[in-house]
């Protein structure tokens, strides 16, 4: 079987419909909801604030912390609320995708906490979290060199495609490759890159290019949402 037509009728380079909103959590310094297709995540930012205990503080540089969690009802089989190895790994890669965007040198001795929760999961949650976190950081007024956007790319068989759904990640009798990408356009750097699958050299590069293109589209949407808050 060759994957010729996507299950949901999208073009191969087309992303799912997006919905975003900032300023959704009253107590947080910055917050956002980011939805792409059926994947929905919420992010909140607290800080910059003093970091306790003192030994964790860095002189001349702020510390960024990210906590990625899934709400137990966000997946079809109830997720144990205790954070697992996956939660910890994703927290780290999301953090590293954002660190180079933030002017952390302004916040020596302080910490910026980002908490991201998956409310509804349908593939691409880590990329959605990058977008939600970027929006929340901008909403908190934390100085950054760009809004980092993220999207998943990949391939089903020989077909390269953008923004895979859960069903596409589980197409039977085909090699499926899933590539998570975050991109900082102003720095022209890919800041999150993870992949699982089986894919040719040519298609790997193609998938990355497609992902970057997707990120740039998402970033434009993010800019619009941030602007709208003040219009």
């Amino acid at each position: 079987m060759v994957y010729k037509k996507r299950y949901d009728g999208r073009k191969f380079d087309e992303m799912r419909k997006m919905k975003m909103e900032v300023g959704v959590i009253d107590n947080a310094d910055g917050s956002a909801v980011f939805q792409i297709g059926n994947t929905k995540v919420i992010a909140g930012v607290y800080g910059p604030k003093i970091l306790h205990p003192q030994r964790l503080r860095q002189e001349g540089k702020g510390v960024l912390r990210v906590h990625y969690r899934m709400m137990p009802f966000s997946v079809s089989e109830r997720k144990n609320p205790r954070p697992g190895r996956r939660d910890i790994e994703l927290s780290k890669v999301i953090k590293e995708s954002l660190e180079s965007a933030i002017f952390l040198e302004n916040f020596g001795g302080s910490v910026i906490d980002i908490h991201v929760y998956v409310v509804q999961g349908d593939a691409g949650t880590r990329c959605a979290c990058v977008c939600a976190a970027s929006l929340a950081l901008a909403d908190a007024g934390i100085p950054m060199n760009d809004l980092v956007a993220g999207v998943a790319s990949g391939s089903v068989g020989e077909q390269v495609l953008l923004d895979l759904t859960y069903d596409e990640e589980h197409v039977e009798n085909e090699d499926v490759t899933d590539m998570a990408i975050a991109y900082n356009e102003n720095l022209d750097k890919v800041t999150l890159l993870q992949m699982d699958g089986n894919i040719s050299e040519k298609n790997m590069v193609k998938a990355l290019e497609l992902g970057i293109k997707g990120c740039n589209i998402i970033k434009k949407e993010m800019q619009k949402v941030l602007k709208k808050r003040y219009e």
């Binding site: 959590i25 009253d26 059926n38 929905k40 709400m71 137990p72 009802f73 966000s74 997946v75 079809s76 409310v119 509804q120 999961g121 349908d122």
Partner: peptide
Amino acid sequence: ISNQAEGSCHVKLGKTEVMVG
């Protein structure tokens, strides 16, 4: 609020907000 849940909601009691699944 989550189509993966058998039932779910987002409650706002004044400014207190809870998501339940």
